[in-house]
Design a protein around this nucleic acid. Structure first.
Length: 977
DNA sequence: TCTCTGCTAAGAGGA
């Protein structure tokens, strides 16, 4: 989105370089006409700006020619990537460290001093808010701070002539997003101050200003880093307060330093920002059509500085990769020593693994960044965003703001009376959505974040992280916030895998070197005598492969892979496994990628009185599991470190998502086993995370079902969608297959057997094998159809009769000759004829007595779900679940209708989705009793997997809809039915 | 050519 004005955005069309001078040809118009020029000189010419970049220009433009030089103007590179103040001030010493810090985020372990700093900040901010700095109050507040649960367990103007008086606090911990300068940050204290300066005569002038005030609790260094931080806060809040100076307060000494920035200071800091953002955005580069990792800023060879750098391992790893990629190994002795010390324990294949995955993550990050929707908050007006359904504008605070127990602020907004009334409920935002609050004018961007609670026609309530009551009267906009989750967890896990430690060494052997897993041969050595009876009892309920799986896990020294084919009772198996391990006294870390998968197992486990601790945000946890969360345990009162330790150590079993491993519990606890469900859908770097905390692990999944989603095409082709489950499967001695299924009847199962499992899938019982759809009122529907046929002999309805029959569990309706062509819309691909046909079939099936809640409709494309749902609005269809293939994985329904969607008249481009065998396999294995497939065989034959399925189907009914006379040509003619 | 769920976050200080 390009624009002129205050937050202007220009596209760089051309870069002309000459010594000491860079000339950019830019345009802020979508048509790229007219163009303007921008002259960069006096050091600005070193800005790493490239063709195709978006820039923001400050200063004066004379008839379409900008000059950015020593005394005037700024250029902000890629301004929509907001860079934090601390990242920039960190880059002063070492740009390389700042870039690595952005990639490998949570790497800094923390220290006592940091914890102390956080607490002292809070005490000061509270005292300042209360305007009470008495010793008594301070010590009371300090005591309170010491008992605050979030700190528990987290172990890891001094100018003679000018007098500055802080008159009032405007805000504490104010959040600022500045799209103008491409900056973001949180300001410790925003203070209203009175500044009295001596004038040349005897008079003193006095003025009032609102300025950022930065607190420091450590040594009074008045360092360039500290002052830079203040300058950046002043700059990013300049549109709010128009201040030119800020304050730096050292709490240890009580000294207050005014920090006044010159143009030069701001200029140099913005140049640093530009360099930093350039490196962050260009971590991958193309060389002869192949992508590779880019070079980082140069390595600093200062022993003193590097010794304590939290990024030193990543720094060294990157340098080693450099040598691999660019075959340059002529480095200084100091550097060679450093590399040897940090990475000497790694062999080349391990470095390659790291390098390979870093590249994949870099590629994927590019694709994710392109889709990042957060910048809409400042680039799009509220009206534009409202049209997309991701925003509500023109709302005002209504009623008081109330503080909730968990420290969040409950706000209520209503549409301002100044603008035409329109229902809020239709906005597209729904309760539970994450939101960002900004002002309508775009001056106060990102004021607060939180969750929507309730959306009605007239008002919206939400819980926010900050109290906005002082903004009564201000017009706000609320934007849906998808958040910006980069790949820092991936990278952090990869980096940890390369660590020189026992845990990492072992995991590296298994995962990277693919060392064969080892097993012991005798169960009696692992089974405690007193647990034998209990275990034997639990085993009774299992079938043969399930029992084998249990045994294999107990005998494993490294890992076990459990292949859970569709319907084979994966959840039950995991639940039983946990019960057995629990009975043996083993501790278990139970995880999966999604909250719902974790809770599915826990819901079962709960019935067997196996205790567990569930970590994770209450908002995401299943209501019935909430009593087991840390949150609810804390409500009963946890006040001391030992109470907290007790809470964390009490249960043998701990459950959380793979991303939940940043929890402080993992700084202390190790587990005997880690079980990961859905493992075939988790990307390798994420799957590694929980494995660091367990001696042995169990991956449960099925690589014949859906793989991890990878957005970037190149990353996918380089293997990013290979899960750890798939990678380790080559060691067949570690694999147990659950092949006895209790879901599908014989005919439905045979599809999957011929498509994927080569006949290995078996029915668990004759009852499963022969179960059919129940349609109690089929007779009356049939007679209705017959009488319709009599009065309309031109419509041959034999195909409908055939389709409805419960005795034919698999049925393909071929629309090739109808024809039923797909349509490409903005939201994706859909097929209206298939949607209409499905609508009619469902009404008949429901009329025949099929319960709507027993029906699932599946399509590979979201847009098709929309067009089907739109037809199923009437209350008769309430309960029918319409969803994508991906979302149906792990679930089933008695009756499944699958819409293939794709159908083109000519040889067009085919999508990727249906080319995937695994997606098709998931789609056809969701039905228990009846599977109806709707699609155009002529088009679908071009997909290899569908072709194979169709060949198998020749033994089953395929209704060719061209056989009927007019009946389908206009599906509306079925309406009479 | 479109499938998707995870995540609070910027900063807390030392050498």
């Amino acid at each position: 989105i390009l624009s002129g004005g205050l937050n202007n955005r220009y596209w760089v069309l051309d870069v002309d370089e000459r010594p000491g001078l860079k000339t950019l040809t830019v345009s802020c118009s979508k048509s790229l006409h007219p163009t303007e020029t921008c002259l960069l000189k006096d050091g600005w010419d070193m800005t790493p700006v490239c063709c195709g970049d978006v820039v923001h220009l400050e200063g004066c433009s004379d008839g379409g020619s900008w000059v950015v030089g020593r005394e005037q103007g700024f250029l902000v590179l890629l301004p929509d990537s907001l860079i934090s103040g601390t990242s920039i001030s960190n880059s002063i010493r070492c740009m390389r460290r700042a870039v690595l810090g952005d990639m490998f985020k949570s790497f800094d372990g923390g220290s006592k001093q940091m914890l102390n700093g956080t607490m002292v900040h809070e005490v000061f901010q509270r005292a300042a808010t209360a305007k009470d700095f008495s010793l008594e109050t301070l010590s009371k507040m300090a005591d309170q701070a010491l008992c605050r649960p979030q700190y528990l367990g987290d172990i890891r103007c001094q100018d003679s002539t000018t007098v500055v008086t802080v008159a009032e606090l405007a805000d504490i911990e104010e959040n600022v997003w500045s799209p103008r300068f491409g900056l973001k940050g949180k300001i410790d204290v925003t203070a209203r101050v009175q500044i009295q300066k001596p004038r040349s005569g005897s008079h003193r002038t006095s003025e009032e200003r609102t300025v950022p005030l930065e607190l420091k609790t450590g040594k009074e260094s008045n360092s360039i880093e500290h002052r830079s931080q203040v300058i950046l806060y002043t700059l990013m809040s300049s549109e709010r307060y128009h201040s030119e100076a800020g304050l730096l307060l050292y709490l240890k000494t009580g000294n207050l330093h005014p920090v006044v920035a010159s143009h030069m200071d701001r200029r140099e800091l913005l140049k640093l920002r530009n360099t930093l953002v350039h490196h962050i955005h260009n971590c991958v580069e193309k060389e002869a059509k192949r992508s590779r990792l880019s070079k980082l800023p140069d390595i600093l060879t200062n022993r003193q500085t590097c010794q304590y750098c939290p990024q030193k391992r990543n720094c060294a790893l990157y340098e080693r990769l450099n040598c691999l990629i660019y075959s340059a190994d002529d480095c200084e002795d100091v550097v060679r020593d450093f590399l040897q010390q940090e990475t000497g324990h790694l062999i080349p294949p391990q470095l390659s693994y790291f390098s390979h995955w870093l590249l994949l993550c870099g590629l994927e990050a590019t694709s994710m960044e392109a889709k990042n929707g957060r910048k809409r908050v400042w680039l799009q007006t509220a009206e534009e965003s409202e049209k997309n359904g991701s925003c509500v504008g023109n709302v005002q605070l209504s009623g008081p703001v109330t503080v909730q127990s968990d420290g969040v602020f409950l706000h209520r907004f209503q549409r301002s009376s100044m603008v035409p009334q329109e229902g809020l409920a239709s906005s597209g935002l729904a309760s539970g959505d994450r939101i960002v609050v900004s002002d309508q004018k775009g001056k106060l961007v990102g004021l607060a974040t939180g969750y929507l609670c309730e959306v009605s026609k007239t008002s919206i309530s939400c819980t926010l992280d900050r109290d906005l009551s002082k903004f009564s009267g201000v017009l706000f906009r609320l934007d849906g916030d998808e958040g910006v989750v980069g790949l820092s967890t991936h990278l952090t896990n990869l980096s940890r895998l390369m660590e020189n430690s026992q845990d990492s060494d072992r995991l590296r052997e298994l995962v990277v070197d693919l060392r064969p897993p080892e097993f012991i041969y005798n169960l009696s050595s692992v089974l405690p005598r007193e647990a034998k009876d209990t275990v034997a009892n639990i085993l009774k309920g299992l079938n043969k492969p399930q029992k084998q799986a249990m045994k294999k896990v107990l005998l494993s020294k490294d890992y076990t892979l459990i292949v859970g084919m569709p319907g084979t009772g994966k959840t039950t198996t995991i639940c039983t496994l946990v019960r057995i391990l629990h009975a043996c006294g083993f501790s278990v870390l139970l995880t999966s990628y999604t909250h719902s998968a974790v809770d599915n197992i826990l819901l079962k486990l709960k019935r067997f009185r196996v205790g567990f601790l569930r970590l994770g945000q209450g908002q995401k946890v299943h209501p019935d599991i909430l009593p087991y969360t840390e949150e609810s345990a804390r409500k009963k009162g946890v006040h001391t470190l030992s109470e907290l330790e007790q809470l964390y150590n009490k249960e043998l079993t701990v459950a959380t998502t793979c991303m939940g491993i940043k929890h402080p519990i993992f700084t202390r606890r190790r587990f005997d086993f880690c079980i990961i469900d859905e493992a075939s859908q988790i990307s390798q770097p994420i799957c590694l995370g929980p494995l660091f905390y367990a001696k042995r692990f169990v991956l449960v999944g099925d690589h014949q079902q859906l793989p991890p989603i990878v957005q970037n095409q190149e990353a996918r082709s380089l293997g990013m969608d290979e899960s750890l489950f798939k990678r380790l499967e080559l060691h067949s001695e570690a694999v147990v297959q659950l092949n006895v299924q209790y879901r599908m009847n014989r005919q439905i199962m045979s599809l999957s057997n011929s498509l994927m499992y080569e006949g290995r899938l078996e029915c668990g019982s004759e009852r499963t094998a022969t179960a059919l759809l129940s349609l109690p009122f089929l007779l009356s529907v049939q007679s209705e159809l017959s009488s319709y046929s009599k009065s309309h002999p031109q419509h041959d309805l034999a195909w409908i009769h055939a389709t409805l029959l419960p005795s034919s569990p698999v049925c393909f309706l071929d629309c090739s000759m109808v024809p039923a062509l797909e349509s490409v819309e903005k939201g994706g691909i859909s097929n209206h004829t298939e949607a209409a046909l499905i609508h009619r079939l469902l009404s008949l099936l429901i009329k025949a007595g099929c319960k709507p809640s027993d029906i699932g409709v599946i399509a590979p494309y979201r847009q098709q779900l929309k067009s089907i749902s739109a037809l199923l609005q009437s209350s008769a269809f309430t309960g029918v679940e319409v969803n994508t293939v991906d979302r149906y994985q792990g679930r089933d329904k008695s009756l499944i209708v699958f819409s293939f969607v794709r159908s083109t008249a000519e040889e067009g481009n085919l999508g990727e989705l249906l080319k995937d065998w695994r997606r098709l396999n998931v789609a056809i294995t969701r039905a228990k009793h009846k599977l109806l497939m709707v699609g155009s065989i002529t088009t679908l034959r071009r997909y290899a997997p569908v072709e194979k399925l169709l060949n198998h189907l020749e033994y089953m009914p395929i209704c060719k809809l061209d056989d009927l006379k007019g009946g389908i040509r206009s599906p509306c003619s079925l309406v009479h039915l």
